[in-house]
Amino acid sequence: MSRMLSFTLRRLLITIPVMLAMSVLVFMIIRLVPGDPVRTMLGFRATDANVAELRDQLGLDRSLLSQYLSWLGNLLQGDLGTDIISKAPLTELLAQRLPVTLELTGLSMLTAIAIGVPLGVWSATGGPLVRRLTEGFVILGISIPDFWLGIMLVLLFSGIFLLLPPSGWVPFAEDPVENLRRMILPVLTLAVGEAAYFLRTTRSAVGTVLEQPFVTFLRAKGVSPRRIVYGHALRNAGPSIVTVIGIQVGVLLGGAIIIETLFALPGVGRLVVTGITQRNYPVVQAGVLTIATIFIVVSLLMDLLIGWLDPRVSDAGTS
């Protein structure tokens, strides 16, 4: 237990500089816009008074360091800034939008794992036919672009079979069944490609483990093939699979931006897209910051999981 505790503390310490570096990057986005960001935001019809007001509001007349520090200070108090168009506090706006994105990516991830990992194990242990079938799925899943698959699924399930609504969103608290029904198509769209990655990773990781000498010793002990695969091979393959899941969370969050737009889901991704088209930089900043934070937190959780699965990882550097 103390092994995992010290590993967790060490890993948490590493997260602090990562978060700081990320905040600097996000902060710089708005400052790297060519020309005057305030004029870009307000458009060419803005009066000088408007520009001066917004510049003052954003604090752009102060030094970079002092701007960054006050922004960071506000962040640490949970204040993400203000939407320059609606004047709404961004913290509230994101609190509304975040659950949608989390539900979409979370369900997609779980679906992809539920499809990809068992198929990967099946592929690693099955015969040539199984191998060929799963290989076909991998090639299709990785090659088909999300947005195309989404459109095709909408055509099929809402255009031809009239089974599912093509887009839109209902809060889970209001109508859980309708909420999940409307999530099916976007979740499937995101999950198919991810499932293909997880299948491929699981197959190669489990296959590699099954060639290890300790598997021969397990067989010599009379351990059943089922237990060898699920008790030993999958556990040893776990760190590789979890690593890929952690990386793919980032891909999935990126994909969510497209899918939220396609299916009209009011998530963080669509907020960012709208923010970009309206040159509403504080919104873009807050949205990107939120998504990046989710990614860093997920990476942290995945690393802790790997440390728990493989004692050699969490032992490293202790003694």
Binding site: F214, T216, F217, L218, K221
Partner: peptide, 24 residues
Amino acid sequence: LRVRRGDEMAMIFQDASASLDPTW
């Protein structure tokens, strides 16, 4: 054969480090 392995007959190998599951 599996029922007999580990019960009536057993085998050990050259490299003990490689014979054990590192995660168990």
